Simulated assay, not measured.
Amino acid sequence: MRKKIPKIKEFPDDGRIWRVDWFGGVERNEQVPSEPKIQLIISPVVDESDFAASRAVNHAERQVISIGVGQLPLVTIGSLWQNRRRLISTAGRTKLFSNLEISPEKVRVIKSDAIIDGAPLIPKRYHQIGAGLSAKCLAIEWQGDHYGIIIPVAEIIRFYYATSTDLAKAIFFGDFRHNLTSIVNPAECGFNPVERQCILKLRKEFSDSDAFIIGRILNSPEALTGVHLVHDSLIKYAVQGKSRTYPESNFPFSGITNLRVRLKPIPTSEDKKWRFIVFALEHCTGPFPFDSIICDRDNSNLRPEDDDDLPREQKEAAYDPRHE
């Protein structure tokens, strides 16, 4: 992992190990207006026996750093950094949640500092999030508890949408709503309903792996809404004169899924009842709106054979302008 993930210069270069505790707000980047910055709340590690434990870090030396959103795919809560490089070790343990229902009835938006039944959603004695108190989370009902699984919205964005630097910049800058032609050529995108096949004409800046995320966004109303929410929420708070905002988003699908996550269990006031703070999403079985994808690009000489493609009039549009 050390070789694959580049240095992030905003992290301390002091020889100590630093833990990412939480995501903070998003703020304007004066140097690069097209790439906003997102805050990271970090603390130095003083006890390596359990990186997720509250005692593992020195809270008095907690810092807030800001990185460009293009680096968001590289960072998770609980990731450990030394001399600006990410370490292989991480805080938290892996758990699989099976048969989770993702729906408006089972998922709700809540702030990190919410008070539930007279107690903090995230008790300070178990996990301190510093300047991330106003950050939004999605709470999924689990075993009768409306707040059983708590996932920071920034992690939803990182895992489902901002999976690469180019996608992160496009999502936070609002290109899917205001400048779709910078991502794809809409006139040459479509959907083959017979084969459930997504057809994309990507701009050259985006990779083939980006195509699966882009195809999902353009063919799933939930995913398109999730992406629009990111930029729209930033604009909403900017209009209100706030220099720092907390992005909103949602799951890119609805229905039943299995989620494998890295998390930290938090006891509640009820006997033997636990809530789970998700540090990082690792795997999700939520369905894509297509079974296969054909990806062409501006700088490719490859074209699908005529016999393998549907006539243009038989293709469904991949992008519905009514979502604008």
Rank of each mutant, 00 (worst) to 15 (best):
M1T: 13
K4Y: 10
K9S: 07
F11P: 04
F11N: 08
D14V: 15
G15A: 15
E30F: 06
S34D: 03
I38G: 01
V45P: 03
V45T: 05
A53W: 13
A60M: 13
V64W: 00
I67R: 00
Q71T: 09
I77T: 05
W81S: 04
N83S: 12
N83P: 07
G92H: 11
E101H: 09
I102K: 05
V107C: 02
K111S: 12
I116E: 11
D117W: 06
A119S: 13
I122F: 05
P123I: 05
R125T: 13
A139S: 13
I140V: 14
E141H: 10
G144Y: 06
I151P: 04
R158F: 06
F159K: 02
T163G: 02
A170R: 10
F172W: 09
F173N: 09
G174A: 12
D175H: 08
N179V: 00
I183C: 07
V184L: 00
N185F: 11
P186G: 06
F191C: 09
E195V: 03
Q197G: 12
I199Y: 01
K204E: 07
A211T: 06
G215Y: 03
A223I: 07
T225N: 02
V227D: 00
Y237V: 12
Y237C: 08
A238Y: 07
A238G: 01
R244G: 00
T245Y: 02
I256N: 10
R260Y: 06
R260K: 12
V261T: 11
R262M: 05
T268W: 07
E270R: 07
E270K: 14
V278L: 08
F279W: 10
L281P: 05
H283N: 01
C284G: 03
P287A: 12
F290C: 02
I294W: 11
N299A: 15
P304H: 15
D307R: 09
L310N: 05
E313T: 10
